[in-house]
Write a protein that binds this DNA or RNA. Structure first.
Length: 114
DNA sequence: ACGTTGACTGGTC
DNA sequence: TGACCAGCCAACG
């Protein structure tokens, strides 16, 4: 396997690992994950990684949103409505593709270190 | 090789 | 929060 590809897969795995650590009923942002991994590039890489999220892995991608609490990635779900549906099922209030109690449900990966 | 694009973010107004 | 801009890096045509 090419070295570059291996490196990218490791980055993906890190992203997935952090996403899996997000407690039920909580959400976090792409930037927070990027920062936790050492800001390797930028938050866009996290979004790119999510775009390659393996469907067969138990990745709660619906818990990853942008800094404004907006469900920017809902269109990448199948179907898109499922993202909000999953969040609401966990107790996260969503309205108009946006987290209502964003501050309350926000979870910072850094807390995982404690 | 270059320009565009994107599940982003932080600063400014 | 909204709009606009710049920085960011890999993928794609």
């Amino acid at each position: 396997m090419p070295e570059a590809q291996q490196k990218q897969i490791n980055f993906f795995n890190d992203v997935y690992a952090v996403v899996k650590l997000i407690p039920r009923g909580k959400v976090t942002s792409y930037g927070a994950i990027a920062a936790y991994l050492g800001a390797r590039g930028s938050a866009r890489m996290v979004g790119w990684a999510m775009n390659n999220t393996p469907k067969d892995g138990n990745i709660p991608a619906h818990r990853v949103i942008n800094r404004k609490g907006l469900l920017t990635g809902k269109v990448h779900f199948n179907p898109p409505e499922q993202m909000q549906q999953l969040l609401e099922a966990e107790g996260v209030l969503v309205e108009n593709d946006q987290i209502k109690n964003f501050k309350d449900v926000y979870w910072d990966p850094q807390l995982q270190l404690l």
